[in-house]
Design a protein around this nucleic acid. Structure first.
Length: 572
DNA sequence: GCCGTTTTCGGCCCGACTGTTTTCAGTCG
């Protein structure tokens, strides 16, 4: 019984109810509840068993009515209201909505007139030209439906942050190259550093919108143009997601950045606060008596005018940051510049692609003052894991190489945590290591209790400094191990073991939610790139972004320390 | 259906784009 199932039901109720003007606002209520429940880390069944209906009613957007639906679902596995409405409209809304420009009203009209229930029905109806004669539709919308159905196949869903960020930067650079454009920046979920990106939002200012839109649609990575207007143009990119470009007047740039960065819930709350303060907030400015007081001002001005601290983009998810800002308690988040080194790096000795010297020189180019070289240990054969003997020889080599450089090379290893929680190196070897990263790489499907014990046993050896990629998930590929993250946090606190925020694009592990959860404990974090070549160091931006999404300050992150303090920490 | 320092009723973010209209409805973010 998961929050997801309940959120999906409410999401479907929203889809169906919002087609009817009379139940528009009731629909919105279900949507809000769905978003709340879908994003909660605590299980609603736990809330109900501990606090009953009043506990459920504390969830934002959940009142007595929706709370009763939740209880009904927990008890019977069904919600009567949903079952009835589903019988009336047996429509596969979720898939139909993947068609650009297709929403609840059109879905219900085509169901009642033509019996269209799903994508297949829709395609057949369009192919047989039965849609063009329905009032409100025409030849163009029929053709668009066919075009968009075929386009669906080339859409890849959400892509990794790194891929979105790379493409976004490329587009910004391309646009900025033209003298048509004054300011240009990435907005949306990419700017908020969400771990996956559904589309790229870019904002530009210009006095010649039309030419900018032409330039944009001529960008080489554009596969097709979805919509093209004077202020907004959407294109489909070759990488399988869409990109929105909004062009606005230069004087509105601050307000527009605020608006287009989102997220939606954050903005809705901000607009309500604006109204309470007799302002009106839009992408064009902050208006008081129809006068734009945010003319030529930045985002910070807008937040401050609303009596709030400035909220960094990565925090804008409506997870309590607005309330915190109103109390002027927004923390000073860690920044990329605070990072003084990387404590999880591989070389050719195990499965890296660059030599130790190459990795050291690339770290110097990043202005780091230390790195830890952490190759795999023997049981990880697929990664050319090193035996104790090879480590000892390698450490002699590092002592030798280290003399040549100003940067401090810490002797390290990414030690496998074996099934019983013991470490994959002899004590003699471990004693010589400055920085021990310990990670699970095998037997990932253990039951929760066993996996939790396994990791805790490793921490209790008191020989590890950093718990590597603590949940083991791979974005869009592999779920996290079954663990009790709270229990693990308790032991990390007790044994001064830092939790890793692994910055490689497909990991981002811990993720933002787990950082928010675990940072209640008095524990430290290490933001590492897990680089396997010299380019891997660039992933640090993603790790810091993830840490900022988890509201972390610099003093919680060990690789912001100077060398002396870091060594003190590593020695426990 | 939810919500409340304008609190138990009357609101519920706001503007752009498109297609089908002839002034607007539906959709999107």
């Amino acid at each position: 019984m998961s929050n997801r199932e309940i959120a999906d039901i409410f999401e479907n109720l929203y889809d169906i109810l919002s087609a009817d003007e009379k139940s528009k606002f009731e629909a919105l209520a279900y949507e809000k509840a769905a978003r709340s429940i879908g994003s909660m880390s605590v299980d609603v069944s736990d809330i109900y068993s501990m606090e009953g209906i009043s506990g459920l009613m504390k969830i934002p957007g959940v009142g007595r009515g929706i709370a009763s639906h939740i209880i009904e679902y927990l008890k019977t596995g069904k919600i009567q209201k949903y079952e009835e409405i589903k019988d009336k409209y047996p429509i596969d809304f979720q898939n139909l909505f993947k068609i650009e420009g297709f929403g609840p009203k059109k879905a219900i009209i085509l169901y009642s007139k033509l019996g269209v229930k799903n994508l297949n029905d829709l395609k057949k109806a369009a192919e047989n030209h039965r849609i063009r004669d329905i009032p409100g539709f025409g030849e163009k919308s029929e053709n668009l439906i066919l075009k968009n159905i075929s386009m669906l196949n080339s859409l890849g869903g959400r892509i990794l942050l790194y891929d979105g960020l790379t493409e976004g930067k490329k587009i910004v650079k391309y646009l900025k190259n033209s003298d048509l454009i004054k300011q240009c920046m990435i907005a949306g979920s990419t700017r908020r550093m969400r771990e996956t990106i559904g589309d790229i939002d870019i904002l530009a200012t210009s006095s010649d919108n039309k030419s900018v839109m032409d330039l944009f649609t001529e960008f080489p990575d554009v596969k097709s143009v979805v919509v093209k207007g004077d202020t907004k143009t959407t294109v489909l990119l070759n990488i399988g997601i869409t990109c929105d470009l909004r062009v606005i007047d230069d004087h509105s740039f601050g307000a527009a950045m605020q608006y287009f960065t989102g997220n939606k819930d954050h903005n809705i709350k901000l607009r309500k606060i604006s109204i309470d303060n007799n302002y009106k907030l839009s992408e064009y400015g902050l208006f008081y008596n129809d006068k734009n007081i945010a003319y030529d001002r930045d985002e910070k001005f807008i937040y401050n005018k609303l009596n709030m601290d400035y909220i960094p983009p990565e925090m804008r998810e409506d997870r309590g940051e607005i309330e915190l800002a109103l109390q002027h308690r927004i923390p000073e988040l860690i920044e990329l510049n605070d990072i003084k080194g990387d404590l999880h790096v591989h070389t050719v000795e195990s499965d890296g692609l660059n030599t130790t010297a190459e990795m050291i020189e690339a770290a110097i180019n990043k202005n780091y003052i230390y790195i830890a070289v952490t190759n795999h240990t023997k049981s990880l054969k697929v990664a050319n894991g090193m035996s104790d003997g090879r480590f000892m020889e390698y450490f002699d080599k590092i002592d030798e190489i280290g003399k040549k450089y100003k940067i401090k090379i810490l002797k390290g290893a990414e030690v496998d945590i074996l099934k019983d929680g013991s470490l994959d190196l002899e004590d003699e070897t471990l004693k010589r290591i400055d920085c021990v990263v310990a990670s699970v790489h095998t037997g990932m499907n253990m039951p929760e209790e066993d996996m939790t014990d396994r990791i805790i046993n490793a921490i209790k050896t008191n020989k590890i400094n950093i718990l590597g990629h603590p949940t083991g998930r791979l974005i869009n590929e592999r779920p996290p191990y079954n663990t009790d993250i709270n229990k693990i946090s308790e032991y990390c606190e007790k044994y001064k073991t830092a939790m890793e925020i692994n910055a490689s694009p497909e990991r981002l592990d811990l993720n933002d939610e787990n950082i928010l959860k675990t940072s209640k404990y008095n524990i430290y974090y290490s933001i590492d790139t897990d680089s396997h070549n010299i380019y891997g160091y660039d992933f640090m931006e993603l790790g810091v972004g993830t840490a900022r999404r988890g509201w972390l300050t610099k003093n919680r992150v060990i690789n912001t320390m100077d060398l002396n303090n870091l060594i003190k920490f590593l020695k426990k």
